[in-house]
Simulated assay, not measured.
Amino acid sequence: MLTRFQKLWLASFLALGFLSMPASAAEYGSANEAKAMVQKAVDAMKKHGVDATVADINKRDGQYQDRDLYVVVYDMNGKNLAHLNPKMVGKEMLDLTDVDGKFFIRERIELVKAKGRAWQDYKFVNPTTKQIEPKSMYVEKFENVIVGCGIYQ
């Protein structure tokens, strides 16, 4: 059962106009491409700072988006700092669960605290199919933020 917040979150995610995203499997991003997007964002943070890079990610100019891939940034307390969906930005997400009840933001924080970088599996709405599907997100800690980019399985 989805909570009211989860329903609002999923509805706002779908409402962004993802209908124009590609549907063929060949046009989906790969695991290597997701890792490369995270590295691109981390490199920009090293060069220009976290705040400037987060602002660039939130501009939605395409630099941190490619097909179904997009970079997200969270602080170490679960607050969303950057997301393709502007309604997500600034929201506390620590208590967000997927459809199986998995606290995936909490898990993401623990993974980067323990390993610095990792792949994480959970379920999320695929913006192309509009269905809840298995997703793998590559996450990496930089300073006091978590930078991630995910793929649908």
Rank of each mutant, 00 (worst) to 15 (best):
Y70C: 02
V71R: 13
V71H: 12
V72Y: 05
V72W: 02
V73S: 10
V73Y: 09
Y74I: 04
Y74S: 02
Y74R: 03
G78E: 11
K79L: 05
K79C: 05
H83T: 14
H83K: 13
H83V: 13
H83L: 12
L84F: 12
P86Q: 14
P86M: 11
K87R: 14
K87D: 15
M88S: 06
M88W: 03
V89C: 00
V89L: 00
V89F: 00
K91E: 14
K91G: 09
E92W: 00
L94S: 09
L94W: 09
L94N: 07
L94H: 10
T97A: 08
V99W: 02
V99K: 10
G101A: 06
G101S: 06
K102D: 09
K102S: 07
F103L: 11
F104N: 14
F104M: 14
I105H: 07
R106C: 11
E107V: 14
R108V: 03
R108P: 01
I109M: 01
L111E: 02
V112N: 02
V112Y: 02
K113P: 00
K113L: 00
K115P: 04
K115L: 08
K115G: 04
K115I: 06
G116T: 14
R117K: 15
R117Q: 15
R117M: 15
A118S: 15
A118L: 10
D121I: 04
D121Y: 03
D121G: 04
Y122K: 07
Y122D: 03
K123R: 15
F124K: 04
F124I: 05
V125M: 03
V125S: 01
N126F: 06
N126K: 07
P127E: 06
P127T: 11
T128I: 15
K130L: 11
Q131F: 04
I132H: 09
I132K: 11
I132E: 13
I132Y: 09
E133V: 05
E133M: 05
E133I: 02
P134E: 11
P134Y: 07
P134S: 12
K135N: 08
K135F: 08
K135H: 08
S136V: 14
M137A: 12
M137Y: 02
M137P: 01
Y138I: 05
V139L: 07
E140M: 01
E140W: 00
